[in-house]
Each structure stands twice: as structure tokens, then as C-alpha cells.
Design a protein around this nucleic acid. Structure first.
Lengths: 154, 154
DNA sequence: GGAAATTACATAGGGAGCTTATGCAACTGC
DNA sequence: GCAGTTGCATAAGCTCCCTATGTAATTTCC
């Protein structure tokens, strides 16, 4: 498959696994609000915001969902005015999906809300704990990013 | 709302919040497999495994879903033989939900699979990175757990 | 002790979001 | 220019969440 420099990572994984699990719970249970976008919807909008308009099928493989799923998602997003569809100039079959201003505004608001909720949570920690967390998060970030993106493919 | 010992978490919070947010999203995507249990299903089974049989409504509030949602989930789990239902001896209205041997076996298998996936991921790191990651994860975990339990309220 | 209120769960209906299977129109290759 | 491939849409079905509502068992209160 891919590069596997180490034969056996050993018995250390449980701690890492627990952290990842807890982070997943944090994201899904604690950070998502009521009428929030789904994970895929948010990631898709965010991708379109960062990278510009893209074809539907490309968005599907990016988000690791099937093409019909992305068709449905784009339809819902379009219905809510968050994306636009247009025909591709070069290929009559293709659909070009673009984020709208309303979509960008929603993304910004969503980010603000999630940061706010997280900041509230952080407020429950003591100053010492917060300082530790800040330091640890700073160290953890690059490693975890490498870990999680290692098989991201694209 | 709740205890807010710190008036202002300081200027570091937004940065930490951003980091945790990104990591959490990545973690969700990387950890869930194909025919995997949903977050709620896994958490419910796991809870029953650790704490023994419990009432349906208690499970619902534990998982922060509505009672009808838990009724449905338990029905699905029962259909797949992962849990048992029985009437409460003391209260004729109540339903006692218990994990079955098959449920415990599935939990074990799920843990094995996730550990396997994680091991693959960890294999892409260098020995030094792996050592750092393990150390940092060990420090991170207690803080993260405190963060997640801060407003758990039952 | 019996009617009234409450509690524990089930049911009905609906939407999001994922899947596989299939259809169709547009592009590509020979 | 027909055949095969590609890009997307549609259909049918499942999970998993919701709100609204029903029902039976328990508790409360007169």
C-alpha cells in the first residue's frame, strides 16, 4: 500500500487512539449546533471556498462519498442558496459547483459559533490547565496533522 | 449556566479552539470505517458493557438523544442481536437494556479494527515522531477528558 | 381507595444523508 | 458515425435523528 517504515508501532497506540476518539466526540457532540451543516456539507463548502468552483464528481471523491450522494447534497445546498450550479463550458455533461456569498457567510458564522462554543469549554479549565493545553495542542498539531493526512490521498 | 472559573480564557483560546476544531473533524473522518457502528450505537453498547444493564430513557439522556431515537436504536441493536430487552421487575413501564455476548464480541472486534487502522497510520511516522506523539497524547488525554466532561451533566 | 397527573416507552411521520442499481445524454476513440 | 465510456440524475432503501402524540403503568392527592 504505502510506506511502512516501522514494523510495529508497539503498545503505545491506545493513548493516541483514545485522544482521537475523544476528539471525534468533541467535534460531533459538543461543537455542532442545532441547525448545523453536516460534516460533509461543511467540508464541501469549505473546499469550494478555498479552492474555487469544482465538478460534482470531483467533490464526491474528495469527500469520499458516492456521486449520487454528492448530487443530493449539492441539490440541498443549492435549495438553501449556499451553492450555484452551472454547466461546464468544455463538457456538456459536467456540472460546475460554486459557493455563493450566502454560503461563504454561513461558513464564517459557523466557524465563529464553533470557536465560541470551544472557548466556553476552555473557560471551564483552570489557568494552569489552559496553559498546559495550549502548549500541548501546539506540539500535537503538526504530528497529528501528519498522521491524519498520511493516507488522505490528494 | 455552569461553573465558569475564568472570566476570560485569554487570547490563546481562539488559537487552541481552531486547532482542536480542525483536528476533531479530521479525527472523525479517519476513524470511522465502512460498516461501522454509529457514534451513538458504539457509545451505547460501550456504556452497557462497562456499566451493566440500564433503562432505555437513561441511555437516551446519556447519549444526548431523544427517547424515541433511543427506542429506535435499541430496536435496531436488538434486531442484530447486540442487545437484549427485558421488563424491569420494579417498574412495569421500564425497559431494561443489556448488551449480549454478540454485542461484546462486536465491540471487541471494533476495537481491534480501529487499533489496526491506527497502527497502520502510526506506521507512517518515524520512530522519533512516534515517540513524541505517544508522550504528547498521554499528556493531552486527561485534559481532553476534563474538557469533554465539563458540561456532560449526567 | 379511586380519579388525576406523571412517567416510561412506543408509534407515526418526516427529513437528512448515505448506499447500490440503473438510466440517459454527452464526449471520445476507432 | 457507431460503440464504448463518462458525468450526472433518478429510484429505492437503510440509518439515525427529530417532533408530536398515544398508551399503559405508577404515583399523587383528595
Amino acid at each position: 500500500m504505502s510506506t511502512v517504515p516501522n514494523a510495529d508501532p508497539g503498545e503505545d497506540s491506545p493513548a493516541v487512539a483514545a485522544v482521537l476518539d475523544d476528539l471525534a466526540v468533541l467535534a460531533v457532540r459538543r461543537l455542532s449546533a442545532q441547525g448545523d451543516l453536516s460534516l460533509t456539507a461543511a467540508a464541501t463548502l469549505s473546499y469550494l471556498d478555498r479552492n474555487g468552483p469544482e465538478r460534482l464528481s470531483v467533490l464526491a471523491s474528495r469527500q469520499a462519498v458516492t456521486q449520487p450522494s454528492m448530487t443530493q447534497l449539492v441539490r440541498r445546498l443549492e435549495r438553501e442558496g449556499l451553492v450555484d450550479r452551472s454547466a461546464d463550458d468544455l463538457d456538456g455533461r459536467a456540472v460546475r459547483v460554486a459557493v455563493t456569498d450566502a454560503g461563504r457567510a454561513l461558513l464564517a458564522e459557523r466557524r465563529r459559533l464553533r470557536r465560541e462554543r470551544l472557548t466556553e469549554l476552555l473557560g471551564t479549565l483552570s489557568p494552569d490547565e489552559l496553559r498546559d493545553l495550549t502548549r500541548i495542542a501546539g506540539e500535537f498539531l503538526p504530528l497529528l496533522r501528519r498522521l491524519l493526512q498520511s493516507e488522505a490521498g490528494e
